[in-house]
Amino acid sequence: MTDRLLITSSPHIRAPKTVRGIMLDVVIALVPACVAAVIFFGVKALMVLVASTVSAVVSEYLYEKAVKRPVTVGDFSAVVTGVLLGLTLPPGVPLYVPIVGSAFAIVIAKQIFGGLGTNFVNPALAGRAFVLAAWPLHVTSAWLNPLTMDAATGATPLHAFKGGQAVGSLTDLLIGNRLGSLGETSAVAILLGGIYLLVRGVIDYRIPVAYLGTLGLGVFVFGKPGALFQGDPLRGILLGGALLGAFFMATDYVTSPVTPKGRTYFGIGAGLITLLIRYWGDYPEGVTYAILLMNLATPLIDRFVVPKYYGYMHDVEARRRAREGGR
């Protein structure tokens, strides 16, 4: 007779995409943003990114060893978290900020809740929120002038924009020749990564489109102080961390809804909260908290926004008939 045959339940073939492959795709998509950051802000940017990434991976390894769980460093999710956190920080922060931030992100925000798949907020954003609350001065003022790489004084363009003042040329905003966090300056680099993710089928277009669309529309309507419908939607989207958030943070599988429609609502909600914080809140930028808040709303969205099952209208019809027959 033949060799022993394997018996499993159908299906007997699987799609080529694995969690590891997906995470690797995200890492690849982040490369342009990292390169842009290093070009504009030099070695300091590189140090921040390396510190946050290494800290994330080491934290994951140590925690899993400590609680005797299988080590999952190989799935690249910790790398993604580390790089993302690094990209949200200003280039001039002391290195302990990304190190502590990544450790917090991995241990407190992700592993304590069960690791990949069971964390309820985006780890990178939770890490950023933590370091923002721990060392607010470092995280909101350690800017460097691009290219010259000397310490910059003054506010980021977003502050000026919020006040209704003119901000740099669109070209500068697109390329990234301005003050800001590592990953929020170069729009082109972020878009490149975002498009790669879309083409590879890693992320759903609904979240970034709904998010940026809502934000752009809101900026157009309310963006100019004292006047309606005169804002500048393009600059509103390009300034600040909205692009990075829309393509890389809000699209995190674990903390966004599972249904296509739910994702649209998620994006719209995040856009609205970002607007609220930007124009009516104290913080200069609301992307972090907007996405974190929508992360918290995700179970709610998943519960109530479900697709209509195949053949549902027959049930609707039957109920209607029963109602009318009962009268």
Partner: peptide
């Protein structure tokens, strides 16, 4: 080290 303000909140 630089104190972490968040811990007092």
């Amino acid at each position: 080290f630089e104190p972490m303000a968040v811990m007092l909140t």
